[in-house]
Amino acid sequence: MIRLLLAGLLMFAPVIALAKGGDGVVNHTTAPAALDPAKAYLLFRSSTAKSGMINIEHIFLRIPTDAEIAAYRSAKEAAYAADLPKLTKKAKDGKPPTIDEYAFAYEGPVNAFAVDAGDFLEDGAMRSFLVEVPAGTYILYGVSVGGRGITACNCLGTVKFAARAGVITEMGSLFADKVHKESPIPHLEDNLGPSMFAYGFTLGQALVPAADGLARPASLGALPLDIAEYHAVGLFPEPGADWINRLAPVPGILGYERGRVIDLRTGKPAE
């Protein structure tokens, strides 16, 4: 009965017509003849698990540039100033929210996105993706059912890597699935317990970095390529996530010690 009601409730969710990916993010379904020297390219293989009939997709966050952060702050300050009279009038105790407490919807360029699982370079048990993105440092941010929301963030630990312009960054392989019970998808921290299904699935993600001998699409053979260098990332908040989880441990890169994220390159807690 509850599941039926939940299914009904999900029907009420607002229809969102935004394009996936966002600013400067393009999934290549055929290999480019040459790379745009101004863009970076992420190459990875991904498991193909679904939740029901909906693809489970990987979420990336590009750490914004100083200019992007400045633009965000400026827009927030302007919106706050414009709303302050209304906020003051509404405040029951006469104290409007501070700018840090101010709920702000930013309309500027985006830096967090899910990669559309249906737009791949090569199909197979592990699909290959080539995603054109702005150059920068990327975080494996979480996992999404359908790519429209943050179903699970890697708020309890993850990794980041740099992607240079004009080069393909070989990430290795990504895995994702529901993890309340044992998953057929390897490398995940799964079997967390049946009650971790609570009116919605807890999702998990895993990374296997590129190793010697990893096969790449032959069509990319002539293009310049870097191997991603991963670094551990510590806890971070994501109040828009339905669930929280962590990227599964990555030998030599990402470890955990009593809930703390350990940078296994240094043996120290991650920043």
Binding site: L61, P64, I69, Y106, G240
Partner: peptide, 19 residues
């Protein structure tokens, strides 16, 4: 803090409070 719709902007260096 509500429902996040992707793609979106995350300032990363400061807390987010959305509508």
């Amino acid at each position: 803090d509500g429902v996040t719709t992707l793609p979106t902007f995350r300032p990363w260096v400061e807390p987010v409070k959305r509508k």
